[in-house]
Design a protein around this nucleic acid. Structure first.
Lengths: 203, 203
DNA sequence: TGACATCTGTCACACTGTGACAGGAAGGTT
DNA sequence: AACCTTCCTGTCACAGTGTGACAGATGTCA
C-alpha cells in the first residue's frame, strides 16, 4: 500500500471523525459540509470526492457490514439452509464490530447516538440496506436453485435476516455501552432463530 | 368538506398525476420541481406546500397504507396474537389497493414502474417505513403488555410484518397488471404465516 | 358586505452536489 | 536526478432542492 493510499485513508477517517464530532455538538442538520471541510482543512469540493454525500458519512459502517455479509455468505457451505447461512453472516458482522480497535468502537458509539437523535438518518441507513438486500437475494436464490425474480421466498429470507440485524442494532438504549449493544444484537439473532419454523427456508 | 378543501385535494392530485407522468417520460432525476409546477400552473413555492419534497410524491401511497394499518390494528381484538393482527392489517392495505377506483389503480401502477426504475426511491420508501415501524412497535408492545423500549420481540414482530409487505410489493415483474400484483402480495402474506412457528409472537 | 383565516406568488437565500479546468504531488522510468 | 504519467486537490461556476418573509388574492363565516 503506497503513500498515496495511506494518506487517502487517513484523510477519509479525519473527515469522518470531524464530522461525527460536529454532528454531536451542533446536530446533523445544522452542520454544513463547509464546516466539516473546514475542520479538516480541505475544500468542500474535495469532501465530495471522499464521501458522495453528507448522508454517506453516516452509512460508513454499513458499507463494511455489507461487504462482510457477502463474503461470509459466500464462504458458507452451499448445502447449508440459506437462513442459517445468513445468521452466520450476521454473527460475522457482529464479531467485526466487537473486535474493532478502541477508536473504531468510539466511532461506532458516536454513530449510534447520531442515528438515535436523527430518525431520518435511520431511514437513510435502511434505504441503503435495500441495495444490499437485492444482492443478498440474488445469492440466496442461487443457493436455492431459483431465480431471484420469481422466488419470493428468497426475498423473504433475506428481508427477515436484515430485519433481525436492524432490530438488534436499533433497539438498545441510547446510553448503552459496547458490550450491551453487542449483547442485544446477539439476543436479536437468537430470537429470530427461535421464531422461525425449522426448515421454513428450504420449501 | 368545503370548497377550499376540495380544491386543495384536486390540486394535490393534479400535481401528483402530472409528476408521475413526467417521471415516466423523462425519468425521475431529470424532472425538476419547476417542470412539475409548470405542468399544473402553480409556482414552485406552492409545490412545496402540497408535498414537503420531491421524494414525498412517491411516498403518497405509503402514507395511506400507514393510516390503514394503524386503524386496522386498533380495531383487532386485543387478545389476538400480535403478528396475526398485523397480517390482518396487511390484508386491509391490500384490500384498499384492490378496491380503489380505476384512476387510483392507474396511479398505483405508474408508481410501481417509477419505483422499479429508481432503486433509490425504493430506499426512500423503506426509509419512511421506519417511522411507521416505530409507531406500530409501540402499539404491539402495548398489546404484549411491555414497553417498546425493552421488548425486542415487539420490534421483530413488526419488522417481519413490514418485510412481508415489502416483498409482496416489490417482487412482481415490472409489467405485471393489478391482479398479478395483488396476487403476489397475498402470496407473500401466506408465505410469511407459514414460515413462522405458531405462537412465536406470544413468548 | 365586512372581518377573518388560509392559500398563493414573488423575492431572496442557504445548502447540497456536480462538471470543467489548471496546478501540484506521488509513482514509476531512464 | 530529470522526466513523464497519473491521480489528487482547489477554484470557479452552476443546477437544483428546500425555506423564510411578506404582500396580495381567495375562500369562509358572520
Amino acid at each position: 500500500m503506497g503513500l498515496r493510499e495511506r494518506k487517502k485513508e487517513k484523510t477519509r477517517l479525519a473527515i469522518l471523525d470531524a464530522a461525527l464530532d460536529l454532528f454531536l455538538e451542533q446536530g446533523y442538520e445544522s452542520t454544513t459540509v463547509e464546516q466539516i471541510a473546514g475542520a479538516v482543512d480541505i475544500s468542500p469540493r474535495t469532501f465530495f470526492r471522499y464521501f458522495t454525500s453528507k448522508d454517506h458519512l453516516v452509512l460508513w459502517f454499513h458499507d463494511h457490514g455489507e461487504e462482510t455479509m457477502l463474503e461470509t455468505l459466500a464462504s458458507r457451505p452451499p448445502d447449508e439452509p440459506p437462513f442459517t447461512a445468513l445468521m452466520h453472516a450476521l454473527r460475522a458482522v457482529l464479531a467485526d464490530v466487537r473486535e474493532g480497535t478502541p477508536q473504531e468502537h468510539a466511532r461506532f458509539l458516536k454513530l449510534r447516538r447520531i442515528l438515535d437523535e436523527n430518525p431520518r438518518l435511520i431511514g437513510q441507513s435502511v434505504a441503503r440496506g435495500t441495495a444490499t438486500e437485492r444482492r443478498l437475494a440474488e445469492v440466496v436464490a442461487a443457493r436455492r436453485g431459483a431465480s431471484a425474480d420469481d422466488d419470493q421466498l428468497s426475498h423473504l429470507i433475506v428481508a427477515f435476516a436484515m430485519s433481525t440485524l436492524r432490530v438488534g442494532f436499533e433497539c438498545p438504549r441510547r446510553d448503552g455501552d459496547m458490550s450491551e449493544i453487542t449483547a442485544r444484537m446477539a439476543e436479536s439473532i437468537e430470537l429470530a432463530e427461535r421464531s422461525l419454523r425449522p426448515g421454513w427456508d428450504l420449501a
